[in-house]
């Protein structure tokens, strides 16, 4: 309270000496601003913003001039159209519920995949018989794209919702499993021997050495798995959904609401980016020892 008061009291007085200082410091200002520009995070943020601005500009030019360069931009909505439809969508509850539905499906499917694939991968890495039994099946199933599972999934599960979650699960399952397995194979045997020399038994070696040593690979698997989960989800929603951002995007095409196509695509991109950021953040929290990458 008193701090706020003090700063309020000081505020009017402050500009006067600052203005004087700024005038004397003026000759140095350009060089300081250049140095500030070369500061790495600032620099990469500026370059990133500029590249996005250039992309939007190119989009704007191509669509307002209705370019026909074999690739046709006549029916593509302009950035302004998309912005307008985004404003409209923001006000309506349906768009929000589409987004929420997709996020919930990702959360269920991805969480299930992680809960099954991580323990399975760890155990397969540790016990040869299990690895030899599961590996052939997973090798046959792995190359089947999640979209190819859509008809089978609809037959397997009683509700549409469950079959979409199942497809999301399948998409993220194999990247997580294979990365966990690979992580287990590359655990430094010297660390295992060191732990056993210090009195660690089987369960303790697993918990204290194999698991933390495999964590970086597990998180690689989670990041890849999250990407594939979104790909699978959108495909499943487009084919069999009634809700979700994939359905929204496809429906926009059917109803000739072209700006909504771009809006749906942008929403998918932002959600995908946000979810992989979340995983990276989680990885940093769980693995404080690994240098930030």
């Amino acid at each position: 309270m008193s701090n706020v008061m003090a700063s309020n009291v000081l505020a009017p007085a402050a500009p006067l000496p600052q203005a004087g200082a700024a005038r004397t410091a003026e000759p140095q200002a350009p060089s300081r601003s250049v140095r500030w520009l070369h500061d790495l995070p600032v620099r990469s943020a500026l370059v990133g913003a500029a590249s996005i601005a250039l992309f939007v500009l190119a989009w704007h030019v191509a669509t307002t001039w209705k370019l026909d360069l074999y690739v046709r931009f006549m029916n593509v909505p302009t950035p302004a159209d998309v912005l307008a439809s985004a404003e409209a969508a923001w006000g309506s509850p349906t768009f929000g519920s589409h987004l929420l539905m997709s996020c919930r499906r990702i959360a269920y499917g991805f969480a299930l995949a992680a809960l099954v694939a991580i323990p399975l991968g760890l155990l397969m890495g540790r016990f040869r018989l299990l690895r030899e039994m599961v590996f052939p099946v997973s090798e046959v199933l792995r190359p089947i794209p999640a979209i190819a599972w859509v008809p089978m999934s609809i037959m397997l599960w009683p509700t549409n919702e469950q079959s979409i979650v199942f497809i999301t699960f399948l998409g993220s399952f194999f990247p997580i499993l294979l990365n966990t397995l690979h992580g287990m194979a590359t655990v430094d045997p010297v660390l295992v021997r060191a732990a056993r020399c210090l009195g660690a038994r089987e369960a303790a070696v697993f918990r204290e050495v194999y698991l933390p040593a495999t964590l970086p690979q597990i998180f690689t698997g989670l990041t890849v798995g999250m990407g594939v989960a979104w790909v699978s989800l959108i495909a499943a929603e487009m084919i069999s959904g009634q809700f979700g951002i994939g359905y929204f995007t496809w429906e926009a095409y059917s109803l000739v609401q072209y700006p909504d196509i771009a809006l749906g695509m942008i929403a998918i991109g932002v959600l995908g980016l946000a979810s992989s950021w979340t995983i990276r953040l989680l990885g940093r929290l769980v693995m404080p020892w690994s240098p930030a990458r």
Binding site: V190, L191, A194, E208, V209, P212
Partner: peptide, 8 residues
């Protein structure tokens, strides 16, 4: 090879 646990 030192063999310290990097995560500890």
């Amino acid at each position: 090879q030192y063999s310290l646990f990097p995560w500890k």
